[in-house]
């Protein structure tokens, strides 16, 4: 498993190519914005029924990360479900799958704007998790430091010989790390957008996800 190592508030962390964040010393794996059950929510809304495979696709990747890292503590950083109903409307097989992943691991659901209430699945449910010197929450506080958050689905664009390539990315500076969305059915926000640009320091880095994560300076608006 390849990753990009850095430190936040003195804690060594690894940004994995899959979009998960590993805190090796604490055995913590953190993922954000899984948006499980999105196709179900879209169907309930009466829109075109999306292929209902995003939950198993996301869980497959999460399972692989859990096995590869041997993490014992899992923090889902919010928007784990596409809405509060999505969790209990998941097909039984997918609920069992989640339970299987939870077995023998401590599992924390941080609440997000899509899934504010408690979920009917195992694990603890928290508004945010202080884990000094770090703090885990869904949406970044501009004044915080040592903060791990998600919410924005940051994405960076690169120009490669006439082709434009977009990759979900981590954003890192000395105060915080913002995680990319881990879920299969998730779009992204260009990290040059003001919402992200104003949160991050000028010297922030973008770590692109992919087979081998790559660091680059966080792109500036044109």
């Amino acid at each position: 498993m390849s990753g990009y190592s850095f430190s936040l508030a003195g804690v060594p962390l690894i940004a994995l190519g899959s979009g998960a964040l590993l805190w090796p010393e604490a055995g913590i794996l953190c993922v954000s914005d899984l948006h499980l059950g999105k196709s179900g929510r879209v169907a309930r809304r009466g829109d075109a029924p999306l292929p209902p495979y995003e939950t198993r696709d996301t869980l497959l990747r999460l399972e692989a990360d859990l096995e590869a890292t041997g993490a014992r503590r899992i923090i889902c950083l919010g928007d784990s479900f596409d809405d509060s109903e999505a969790a209990h409307l998941l097909p039984e097989s997918e609920k069992l799958w989640i339970a299987r992943l939870q077995a023998g691991r401590s599992w924390i659901w941080i609440e997000g704007n899509h899934d504010p209430g408690p979920v009917s699945l195992g694990g603890s449910h928290l508004a945010e998790l202080p884990q000094p010197p770090l703090a885990f929450r869904h949406i970044a506080h501009p004044s915080a430091s040592g903060e791990v958050s998600g919410h924005y689905h940051p994405k960076a664009y690169l120009h490669l010989r006439g082709r434009r390539v977009a990759r979900p990315c981590f954003l890192i500076d000395s105060d915080r790390v913002i995680l990319p969305a881990y879920g299969t059915y998730t779009g992204g926000l260009d990290c040059r957008e003001p919402a992200l640009r104003t949160l991050m320091r000028r010297e922030a880095l973008a770590i692109l996800t992919g087979a081998t994560p790559q660091a680059m300076p966080m792109p500036l608006p044109e």
């Binding site: 179900g40 169907a43 009466g46 029924p49 209902p52 495979y53």
Partner: peptide, 11 residues
Amino acid sequence: YALRAYDRWQR
């Protein structure tokens, strides 16, 4: 879809 997950809410 081969997986009939959300047929309750079919369009």
